[in-house]
Every structure is written in structure tokens, then in C-alpha cells.
Amino acid sequence: MTEPHILVVDDARDIREPLGTYLKKHGHRVSLAADAARAREVVQNGAIDLVVLDIMMPGEDGLSFCRWLAGRGGPPVILLTAMVEDADRIVGLEIGADDYVVKPFNPRELLARIRAVLRRVPPTPPTVASGLRRFAGFVHDPDQRTLEKDGDKVSLTSGENRLLGVLLDRPRQVLTRDQLLDLTAGREAKPYDRAIDNQVSRLRRKIEADPKQPAIIVTEWGGGYRLAADVEGLDGGGETADPAGDPS
């Protein structure tokens, strides 16, 4: 059983929060955002399967955010519109929205439309960026699923390889367990899955001098995990301020 991750974007709390609760009860993982700025953060730091998006919001409106989503290739969008927003519904569909629901709406209808859109849009499996990268004295080869340091090479499982790739993509950024699940498992992730903790523990045993006191993959209590090292691309990619990869 898969658990699609739905992002609900609506400035009205009395719509946003009850809808989130309803979708959770029907087998979805849910993130909530009160505006487009917060929604961008969620999309950029997780693997969202579908966005339920209000058109009329203060600041950046839903149509502008929908255009931004379409420009980066998804995820699919269902618009929440008012009866008087007929022209906006048409514009939304033209710029990339997949469906719309008129307010006030029946949550069962919206759930049915969500399921229909997800059936049409196959899940995109998480991928690992290609190219060699150096961090904390290690060189990661994602294609060969290996780590090398001082001539010693160790193999990584596919899960460890994906997890490390995600951390290397976002050095020094705190990633929650939910975000790591999204980015490594996508729609196959299950709520409250502790596999991330197990993978972090296994990965630490392969890269930390003392896995019980990690200095490279550090725990942010109440937050998640953070790669405490700079990352250098070895195939012509970008380089951070500390190419030596000092984890301090």
C-alpha cells in the first residue's frame, strides 16, 4: 500500500486543517501551508505527489504558484475555486492544473478527484544525482554505490546510497525524517517509518570515526538530521567554501 503525500495550500485555517485531518484519515500523508511562500519550501524540501491549491490567497496567489509548479515539472495540482472564479479556473487549467473543485466542496468529492489524478500520474521513483562528490575526506560514487577514503572503498546499499545522495544535495541543511522519507522513498514511504533512522545508523558506521558521537551526519533533536560537511563536485560541478570537506 502506498501513501501519497498531499500538500494542502489554503490561507483559511478552517478549510486547511479539517481537510488535512480528513485526508490523513483516508490514507494520505499531508503537509499544510497557509501561503505560497511556505508551500514553495515544502515542495523544494520534499517529494509531494499532489497539491490541493486555493486560487485566492493574500500575497502570491494560487495561479502564480501553479505556474511555478508547472514550470518545474509538477507535482499535479487540483485547484480550489469559488463559484465566481470561472475565468480563473480556465486560466488554471491552461497553465497546468489537473483538475478543480468549487467551494464549498464535499471532502469525499475532493478525495475522489485526488485519487483519480494520482491514478493518471504514475509515481516518479526517487533518483540519486550522478557524478563523484567529495565530503569530509570521502568520495561518493553514486553509480557504483561506493564510498572511498584514503584508498579504502566500502559498498553502500541502494537505500544508503539514496540517503547519502539526498544529504550531499543539501549540505548543512536540517532535514526532517518526513522529508528524508519523501526524498528517498517517494510515494512508497509509510507514515512513521523508522527506516530512515536505521539507514542513518548504518551509514554512520561506514563514515564516522565514532558512530556514537557522529560529527558528519549529526542529529538535530526535534528536527531530523544534517550533513555537517561541505561538498565538492568532482565532475565539473559546483564547489562549496570548504572543498576539503572539514565537518567542523
Rank of each mutant, 00 (worst) to 15 (best):
G223N: 11
G233I: 00
T2K: 06
S31I: 01
P122Q: 09
M57D: 11
D86F: 13
L79P: 13
D99F: 05
V77D: 06
L227F: 13
G27C: 12
G245Y: 14
I55A: 06
A70T: 08
E148N: 05
T127D: 07
D182L: 00
D14E: 14
R108V: 10
A228I: 07
A97Q: 02
D49G: 01
Y22T: 12
R194E: 15
D88K: 06
R205V: 02
G186P: 11
L79G: 12
T146L: 13
L63K: 08
P75F: 02
L163T: 02
Y22E: 03
R145Y: 02
R204W: 11
D14R: 11
L147E: 06
D98Q: 13
R194K: 15
A97P: 10
I217A: 09
Q173C: 02
Q44P: 00
A215H: 11
I114Q: 05
L19E: 04
D210A: 08
F138R: 08
K24R: 15
L80E: 11
I78R: 04
P214C: 04
W221P: 14
G71L: 12
I207H: 09
L63Q: 05
I78K: 01
D152P: 00
Q44S: 11
G236C: 01
V8Y: 09
R40M: 03
N161C: 14
R67N: 10
Q199Y: 12
N198L: 08
D230S: 11
E232G: 04
G92L: 00
L50I: 09
E109H: 09
L118Y: 12
N198W: 07
T184P: 06
E239F: 01
G237L: 09
V91D: 09
T81G: 07
S201H: 14
R170F: 10
A136Q: 06
I6P: 00
L53W: 11
G237T: 07
L181H: 00
D143K: 10
T21G: 04
P125A: 02
P123R: 05
R145C: 04
G71W: 09
P18F: 10
M1K: 03
N106L: 08
S64I: 11
Y100C: 02
V218H: 12
G238P: 14
K212R: 15
D242W: 06
P4E: 04
R133M: 06
P191E: 15
G73F: 09
T146R: 13
I196S: 03
H28K: 14
L181W: 02
V91Q: 01
E3Y: 06
D54E: 08
R133I: 01
L118T: 07
Y192H: 14
